[in-house]
């Protein structure tokens, strides 16, 4: 699996490597992220910080203020380095465009099952590669 390229729809393609932060299946930025500190305040990643991480979630849910949360993360210098969503990025999209945030979505369920358990990924102009996987089950 490590060498295989995972296909995705890509906005702002990039070449980078980073550690993964899994935010949950239905992710609402409001009530999950503290925009001033970058701390995760709810969900499976509670207590961790998203600064410099590759964020992964199943789909967007809940509050429509998500772009403001991400624009505020820029102001506090706590932005993640990329976003991966299994389904479609819609609510967060305007922030991803404005922030030039590498954004990968429309992942197959099979590939997503590997990604959400990965600890380290490499993002490329073509897709995603898992560097370290199966850190959690």
């Amino acid at each position: 699996m490590d060498a295989e390229l995972i296909k995705a729809r890509i906005l702002n393609p990039t070449e980078l490597e980073g550690s993964v932060l899994f935010l949950g299946e239905n992710f609402s930025a409001y009530g999950t992220i503290d925009p001033v500190t970058g701390q995760i305040i709810d969900g499976p990643a509670m207590g961790q910080n998203l600064r410099g991480r590759i964020l992964i979630c199943g789909s967007e849910a809940g509050s429509t203020v998500a772009p403001w949360i991400f624009l505020s993360l820029r102001e506090s210098a706590n932005l993640p380095i990329a976003l991966i969503v299994r389904t479609n990025v819609v609510v967060l999209l305007p922030a991803c465009v404005l922030l030039h945030l590498p954004t990968y979505d429309q992942i197959s369920e099979k590939d997503y099952a590997f990604l959400r358990n990965a600890s380290r990924l490499r993002l490329t102009h073509e897709g995603i590669r898992i560097i370290d996987g199966f850190t959690q089950n």
Binding site: P35, S63, V65, P67, L71, R74, N88, V90, L93
Partner: peptide, 29 residues
């Protein structure tokens, strides 16, 4: 990305992220 064919006119818009708790420094800028 969503497969739209064109832009269409709207009658009204309603905005979220108005509180400084939700809009924050990002909205202010």
């Amino acid at each position: 990305r969503q497969g739209a064919d064109q832009m269409i006119p709207i009658v009204s818009a309603h905005l979220s992220g108005i509180s400084y708790l939700t809009g924050g420094a990002g909205a202010l800028r």
